[in-house]
Computed example of a mutant assay.
Amino acid sequence: MANQPNRKGSNESPVRRKTGVAQIELKSEAVYLHMRGQSGEALNNSLYRLGELFKMTNRSTNKTTYNMLKEWFQNEIISIADNEIDKLSSHFDSLQSELIPGYSFVDIKNPDMNLEINIIHKSHIEVINIISKIDLIMDDIEAIALSGTFDDDIEQSSRNQALLILNNISSKIFKVTKPGKRNGGPFSPVFFLEGLQKGVFSLYPDAEKESNVVNIESTNDKNTAEESVELTEAV
């Protein structure tokens, strides 16, 4: 008989949804400290919110909204993050090509950097894969930095570039779902989905703002043309 996963004790706070607890072993101090702090908590909270939306729409008989969310997640979160990881990898390659001789290590020891992450939907796993990719690159950069081959500010700029990828994920999810806070209260996935289905809320608020600017300019041009006709007729 297979071993059953340990169940949460009765003294722990209840969970709202069936939750898998994954343990990941990180190698980069920068990524570990980021995920252990408030930024990591914000990322987890944003993914929980998105996971709720995925689960609610997937159970619906009308999968239109689910497909909208899935397309948005792949294009605006995963693809963009992967592109930024490619840039981070290229940055690491450029650092390697400019290395000057430094200390050579027979081994590099990491402290215990294990984290538990709650998962309620597979979208969470896709972001964990992104975290792992960033972690591996930053592990190499930190190892090079230990050898004294480049200045501390280069390591810091690399760290900023890496962690910005994770911050952008949480900030984008929160920005898009912000209208789901009815009257400034807690986020309501039901309220957000209702507004999304009615076209009141949008997954692309920035694009809509740009569209509105274009529409305003077009309207102004139209009004100017109509005013010119009226003035000509008056003369």
Rank of each mutant, 00 (worst) to 15 (best):
V214C: 08
D153W: 07
L164M: 02
I169Y: 08
A162D: 10
K178M: 12
N212T: 11
S13K: 14
F192D: 10
S218H: 05
I120W: 06
V127E: 06
Y204G: 02
D107N: 07
A22G: 00
E226R: 01
N215S: 13
V21G: 01
S79V: 01
G40R: 10
K122F: 12
G40T: 08
A234Y: 11
L95D: 08
V214Q: 15
I137A: 06
S79C: 04
V213P: 01
L166K: 09
E233D: 13
K198Y: 07
P14L: 03
K181G: 04
M56F: 06
I24A: 10
E116S: 14
K198M: 14
E116Q: 15
I154D: 11
V200I: 14
H34K: 08
G195P: 06
F105L: 08
E217L: 14
S28A: 07
L95C: 11
Y103P: 01
E71Y: 04
E71L: 09
E98H: 03
I117E: 11
L53N: 07
E142C: 07
M68A: 06
V176K: 03
D82P: 01
K87D: 12
N129D: 15
N114K: 15
Q161M: 15
S158K: 12
K175H: 10
T61I: 09
S228P: 00
D107Y: 07
E210W: 04
L196E: 07
Q96W: 02
P101G: 05
N83P: 00
A81Q: 10
T177P: 09
I216E: 13
K18I: 07
F187H: 07
P111L: 11
I134E: 05
K178F: 09
N45V: 03
V190H: 10
Y204S: 09
L69H: 11
N160P: 04
V127N: 03
I78F: 05
I169S: 06
L196C: 05
S10P: 02
V31L: 07
M113A: 11
E126Q: 13
P5W: 04
A234F: 13
P111A: 14
E41S: 12
V106I: 09
N220E: 15
N183V: 03
I117D: 05
E98I: 00
N67M: 10
K63V: 11
L43W: 06
I128Y: 04
S39E: 15
L69P: 09
Y204A: 09
L99A: 02
L203H: 02
R36I: 01
T149I: 01
I24R: 10
I131Q: 02
N62G: 04
S28L: 09
L115P: 00
E226A: 01
R36A: 08
E29G: 15
R17L: 13
L115H: 03
K18C: 02
K109Q: 15
K27S: 14
A42F: 10
